[in-house]
Design a protein around this nucleic acid. Sequence first.
DNA 1: CATGAATGAGTCTTCATTCAT
DNA 2: CATGAATGAAGACTCATTCAT
Lengths: 234, 234, 234, 234
Amino acid sequence: MVSHPRKGSTAEIRMAKTKSQDRSMSRSALRRLREKEIRYNTILKAAENLFAKKGYHRTSIEEIADLAEVSTGAVYFYFKNKEDILIKLMHEIGHQLRKLLGEELQKADFSFDSFQNIAFAFLRDFCLSQPEKLAIFFRESAGRSSEVEEQRKQLFIDLTQDIKEAFIRINEEREKNSVSGFAPELIAVCIVGVYERIACHYFLWKESSKEDVEDIAQKSVSFMLGGIESLIKG
Amino acid sequence: MVSHPRKGSTAEIRMAKTKSQDRSMSRSALRRLREKEIRYNTILKAAENLFAKKGYHRTSIEEIADLAEVSTGAVYFYFKNKEDILIKLMHEIGHQLRKLLGEELQKADFSFDSFQNIAFAFLRDFCLSQPEKLAIFFRESAGRSSEVEEQRKQLFIDLTQDIKEAFIRINEEREKNSVSGFAPELIAVCIVGVYERIACHYFLWKESSKEDVEDIAQKSVSFMLGGIESLIKG
Amino acid sequence: MVSHPRKGSTAEIRMAKTKSQDRSMSRSALRRLREKEIRYNTILKAAENLFAKKGYHRTSIEEIADLAEVSTGAVYFYFKNKEDILIKLMHEIGHQLRKLLGEELQKADFSFDSFQNIAFAFLRDFCLSQPEKLAIFFRESAGRSSEVEEQRKQLFIDLTQDIKEAFIRINEEREKNSVSGFAPELIAVCIVGVYERIACHYFLWKESSKEDVEDIAQKSVSFMLGGIESLIKG
Amino acid sequence: MVSHPRKGSTAEIRMAKTKSQDRSMSRSALRRLREKEIRYNTILKAAENLFAKKGYHRTSIEEIADLAEVSTGAVYFYFKNKEDILIKLMHEIGHQLRKLLGEELQKADFSFDSFQNIAFAFLRDFCLSQPEKLAIFFRESAGRSSEVEEQRKQLFIDLTQDIKEAFIRINEEREKNSVSGFAPELIAVCIVGVYERIACHYFLWKESSKEDVEDIAQKSVSFMLGGIESLIKG
DNA sequence: CATGAATGAGTCTTCATTCAT
DNA sequence: CATGAATGAAGACTCATTCAT
């Protein structure tokens, strides 16, 4: 399997220049490394498209290989098996989502604006512009093997945890009430639920457009802020 | 249900001339009808268990037949194909859910109590006591064929519609503000999302117990009421 | 199995009138007999339609039963099994065909006219007006089990034999040449072949109409007469 | 034939730089290609034997695979499905037949000898020496799905067309009568019919031997020549 | 006799996975 | 490393046939 190629590849390339003998070696080695990474991503991207379009089970390895312009064997060089592709995809999307939200959550306070920003990040930069990832994260990854389900569960829990922690932080900053009624986990679960269903309802089922995003964002933020306030006050 | 056999009404009348014979006919006919219905439900129940436990795809028709103690052929006598079983299950659960909520929504106003009742109905009488149905409705029915997806989508939309209409009604009764900012659909979508995720998070993944229900119900209701108020005020 | 109901049923009915006690018995017995015969033929007719339209293998017993408005069990009361239906159909059509040709062959001499009559009988009264029978006799009955194949073979041989014998008779009547070159069997085989292919080509594949019959008849007769003359002269 | 793998021509050129390596590449590539072709033909041949012996429907894919000494999967690698095998077989036999006759028809005139040659080619080199192909072409390929029927029809029409065109050509060469009564299509249909039935009658049903061929050929040719002459004279 | 529910063997077909070249 | 032919287990589905009522 590919040793997760997320290492600063450009840095490696620069260093390789200095060493004399290595040079030719490095060059081809580096090229191969780069090509491997490219292949890996090509296959992943092909799978993403097909899973989103045809569904996980109705997509065969051969189709993925064809779209990625590699052999079926090559797919098995880069991934343990079919399920592994789905899991890798899920994680990639999960990481991306957490990063997307994480950045906004960092700067967030209990202002309407910071919530609005989060909502926009999710609706515009994820749901609207990457519907394939949406379909895989919220639809195709559900109802598979227990292995997939386990990983999926963990991803959702991580996501929920991110939100929960952000709330705790924000609340501490406010320094007012660590009053009884405050339930960060449940708040996080509710928020994830709201966004999940909005994603499915408006972007997988109805095909909402850019114009709708504004309205959805505003209203959902209003809803959630109201909910949070209500819970904080106990 | 089973394609109810066209009872030749004229024939029945003619037969009815002799009391005794008619009765025995009716008896055996009725018994057979009942038995058919029982078989149908036995198979459906077997599928429900297996789908929930092993997942839709890893459950074979033979396993369903075995558990229902019928032949594989019998399964195909009662259902068009495997997908049909899932669809029938989905609808059954969907109807049950809508009925469960519908009854509570009838009597609901914007009081905390009526919301609490709805939450209890869902959490206690559905999530907690029928985890198989939960798994099928929120997990196994997702990510299947486009036919299944279509039906699932419709069920969710119907559910959302129920809630939306209830809100419109309640709001009219209140007679205060049918003001601008009110967005019944989005509210309904949010509520469905909150309950869906709560169901998955607390009852499919974590195995929450009866004790937790109270707390979850209270807090989620508080969250949603707050959200609604916030949205109504615009 | 039905004791081949080809007994002068009307005669039986008439006789039954005379016997006193028998009367009520006879009546219901006769009615039942008649009903049985009707059922038998209804099923056969249903099978004929379906076999011709959808093909033998793609027609299920249930479909036949449905079209004949009886239960599947009833089909098995009147016929040993599915194959038996095909065989019975084949024989019925075969007999009809032999009768049709037999009558014409009786009066035939070596005149163009008598041949023309035979051709018309076949093309008009069989191919054109009973395309279902055509399809079953020349298409659907081919390529089945060895049992069917055996019976089919025998029917074709019988048909060929009829023609062969007619030729021998005609030739003897002429009293001219029982010369060497004369080969009644081969002539009969050729004639059957010509008609079989004409039937398939013009009436199963191309959908020739009434207008074409005249032309086809004339030319095919000319062809065959020429062929026969040529063979007789050696 | 096997979907000939797209030989990347540019790649070949680059490789060709080193003679030895290129050659070995070519060798193994060619060998693999040859082996693929062989496999394809092995499977086809196995199917031919079994279809002829047991009939199309009573032959399972597994049996074909067993006889060809491959896995069932391999059969599906080379053929789309079971029907595809039959269609491929039909076409192969059809082409062979058309080639066989085509060659003789090229040199044919209205002489007894050239007709004799055609008859011999068909009876000796096809019917007698390849009874499996005979059985498939005239028996097993009949009465299948509409797809098969369509292809079969086309093959027969092509065959008829060949004969028809040959007649037109011959007749023009003679330069006598392109007179009215001449009906090339019907003649061709008759000839195909005669040979089809002779094939079935004498070589599928009765097991005629080499000795009979001479006699059958002579007489059938005499019949057909007579028929043609008769039709030409109108 | 009629019914039609039930049977279950039989088949095609798919496709993830492997491995020799 | 890459290829893609080969594998074969697995599963959905059909349908002729039977038999209790």
